[in-house]
Nucleic acid binder design. Structure first.
Lengths: 330, 330
DNA sequence: ACCTAAAATGGTTACGTAGTCATTTTGTTC
DNA sequence: GAACAAAATGACTACGTAACCATTTTAGGT
């Protein structure tokens, strides 16, 4: 490993001057600058980022705690987060959490000292929140939020749930199943509440047997599918709490010989890129703005880091229906 | 920021002892150990990873240079790479390269000192290869390879191309279009050669107008689609060099009112997870083993890092057809 | 109680960089 | 060419950790 000292010796200057050539070149005379640059080139010198981080107390690194990529929502967000961060000189340490390995994940994040944390996987009452606060590292959540979150970027989940349910009701569907995840998670809670609200508005009762709260795993979703099949009144429409769930349920129905939407209507929420694929064409609810939640979150996090901003970022994006081909009139 | 010195003072021991408590606890007497642990707890001490990296000359970080996630192949590989690395105590710095921003990407990688590099985006004659070699950092490529690569994990691309073409030919298709990427990339070159070979075997000539070499962007693929539509002999089958291309082409055809496979057969290569979706059900060629290329590559890279292994990892996985629903007899 | 080896702990240093302050060199003015 | 300000450079130190070597404490055997 060649260090700035080696370069200094080789160029016949002090280590300080080498540092200056790289960081404040206007403070170095022309000939000296050239000498040092030549030495850097000859010796193939690359500054040690760790040493720099140690003395400057910043790492130019952001930790991303994302949900798994088999959920296409996180494909979209991870893409925009990584690309935007890299373009702005930040590295991204990516972690995919299965909601189980979270404590390991956070340990590794705290140890390694990152400048900021951007995360989705958090429960409304998640105990990790206090640790995050206590760490003093700027952090922002996207999609989900904690009950006392200072900085978050989400969609209007209740409105999204409402719009999706209202849309299905307006298509004259009467037996509608809701499939979602645990209500300890802000997105599911909000979307479920919106779903209920739409039924209240039409003065239609929600039957408890038509509500499926799962862990969103393929297995549990399949169990939900099987139960639906055995219902006295089979659903004519599925209100999935996320596009990932919607696409998974579509799979089960198609594999079982049903046609979508002729036999069953399906609507999701999130408007993930994948839902636009012609062979999927999922009807869904998503944020009206073309800028995704991941992008919004990373932009704001970087602003927080660079400006040492203490301001609260609390963004709730408005939503609208994206009509495609998986939901039709009954 | 509380350091090990602060902990030492608080616990009434030396900094050395604090370090020992964390790294070699068997060298510390019980009561001392407890005292120090209590201090760590009280002060909320977390060791500084940068300082540790500086002195130990290792970062426990691996750089991943992946293709973009809108290509589902990289969804699969990124998932297994990140998860396996994290499970083994490594952080992953993720970069998505568009083949343009590569030099920036690599600069940031070299500066930040990573223990290893795992990359896909490399050309057969890529000049970055020499820089990587000169850096002395262990690296492995997956999927693609460089002409002088020491360490790589790939599928048998030629065989894959051959199998796909042979399959379509065996289904009595006569007008088959090949759609792929630049032949400076090992995967495309191999797959294209396999395609040619299958035609040679049947003594069928390949018409140059049926070969579409694109940059794999949506735009250029769409141009290819338009050209196919204007061909004197319209194709009855498409041989896509990757599943990503296949799925994209499917989109164009379906959007234009065609039915797959009734009107057009499509076959891909890669056997990405997404191709198994019931609403896609892409017929494709993939590696026979259930362990993906990303997984293989990261396992071997970590082995190289930990064992300072100079051995050459050169793995070419055998392939087979995965028959699904997008290709049928003409 | 005494000696000795082993166990436990402490003092000091290196890692490679950037920041601080001191010193030297340069250039300008009269 | 003397005086002085400004520009350029250098010497030294901090950052927080682990490694290395030195010292003190403990335990076991006589």
């Amino acid at each position: 490993m060649v260090s700035s000292k080696d370069v200094a010796k080789y160029a016949g200057v002090s280590q300080t001057t080498v540092s200056r050539v790289l960081n404040t070149p206007h403070l170095v005379k022309g000939p000296t600058y050239k000498k040092v640059m030549a030495a850097i080139d000859d010796l193939n010198y690359i500054p040690d980022g760790n040493a720099r981080s140690l003395v400057q107390k910043k790492t130019d690194t952001i930790a991303l705690v994302s949900g798994p990529l088999y959920n296409p929502f996180f494909v979209d967000t991870t893409t925009s987060i990584v690309n935007y961060a890299n373009k702005n000189g930040f590295k991204i340490n990516v972690h995919f959490s299965n909601d189980e390995n979270l404590s390991e994940t956070y340990n590794s994040i705290f140890e390694n000292k990152v400048d900021g944390i951007i995360l989705s996987s958090i429960l409304l009452e998640d105990p990790i929140f206090d640790k995050l606060e206590k760490s003093g590292i700027p952090f922002i959540t996207y999609n989900r939020k904690h009950k006392s979150n200072k900085n978050f970027v989400e969609m209007d989940n209740e409105q999204a749930g409402f719009l999706a349910a209202d849309y299905l009701l307006s298509l004259k569907h009467e037996t509608i199943c809701w499939v979602g995840g645990p209500l300890e998670i802000s997105t599911f809670k909000g979307r479920y509440n919106g779903f209920l609200k739409a039924f209240q508005k039409k003065a239609v009762a929600v039957k408890q047997e038509q509500v499926f709260i799962t862990d969103t795993s393929k297995d549990e979703l399949y169990q939900a599918f099987l139960k639906m099949e055995k219902l006295p009144e089979k659903p004519t429409a599925i209100h999935a709490a996320t596009d990932a769930i919607a696409i998974q349920m579509m799979d089960f129905y198609i594999s079982a010989g049903y046609r979508v939407p002729e036999d069953i209507s399906i609507i999701g929420i999130d408007n993930v890129e994948m839902s636009q694929h012609a062979s999927i064409s999922l009807t869904t609810v998503g944020i009206s703005s073309p800028i995704g939640l991941g992008q919004l979150a990373i932009e704001n996090l970087i602003k927080m880091i660079q400006e040492k901003n203490k301001a609260c970022i609390q963004i709730t994006e408005s939503v609208r229906i994206f009509e495609r081909k998986t939901s039709v009139e009954k």
